[in-house]
Design a protein around this nucleic acid. Structure first.
Lengths: 125, 125
DNA sequence: CTTGCCTCTGACGCCAGCGTCAGGTTTTAG
DNA sequence: CTAAAACCTGACGCTGGCGTCAGAGGCAAG
């Protein structure tokens, strides 16, 4: 990103990204298709990624686990790329946050109910 | 369920169950198909449910929201019907509990990351 | 009687995040 | 040089909890 980057960063191929992030190669291709990743190409057509792509993919997984769609993630990508957002994006961020918080509450309630049942069935052989 | 039940409980039809639990009629039929509900039938073939079915359906929704499949719920139904469980069921209960707990942790982590971004983008117009 | 709402049984559709197979090229290890 | 491993581009399949349409019967009110 700075001028010192002239010390060209070593690029990695898709398999290394996948192993590094703990996902399948297919998944990484899918992310590209959804506009989440952009890859350079080697002369023969193989995808080449920067090393921090691994971190990015892990982040995608985290967001997927939180219920965001790839579309939403793509729409919000500029936020952590540039740190800048417009009003619409801020609204989306808040909406997702609230949705996740609600889901956490739901899960916690479900957890409590299961724990009830477990407690009962343990004392009730 | 006791003898006093002779004062026959009023049975309700599928629409009332659906409205009461806040789900679609289609969903209630689906639950029956998956073995989660058993309905009596009127002479003309209409499904008739006990009133507490509404509560049961709400419970299903809670478990679905927690990521349990209808199959799992069906396998665990005896637990809260009879209060009795075998070793296998107890193991499943614990497994689901742990899975949900892990999911809560994941969601919480995602929430924290989103909050980070929100904080940054708020101070960074 | 008929109007209008509720219910019935199939059965196909949908979405999202991949899995997986096919058939071919490229890179790497020995 | 060769074989294995890794990569490529399509393109169809899968899962689960329903939505939805089709076509037909049931039931209280006016």
């Amino acid at each position: 990103m700075t001028v010192t980057e002239a010390a060209a960063e070593r690029l990695i191929r898709i398999g290394e990204v996948a192993r590094g992030a703990g996902v399948s190669v297919r998944a990484v291709r899918y992310y590209e298709q959804q506009g989440l990743l952009i890859a350079e190409r080697s002369p023969s057509g193989q995808r080449l990624y920067r090393q921090d792509t691994v971190t990015l993919v892990r982040f995608f997984q985290q967001m997927f686990a939180a219920g965001l769609t790839s579309r939403r993630i793509a729409e919000l990508l500029p936020c952590w790329d540039t740190g800048h957002t417009d009003a619409e994006q801020r609204a989306m961020l808040r909406a997702e946050r609230d949705r996740i918080q609600a889901k956490v509450d739901d899960l916690q309630a479900a957890l409590d109910r299961l724990d009830e049942v477990i407690a009962i069935t343990d004392t009730h052989p």
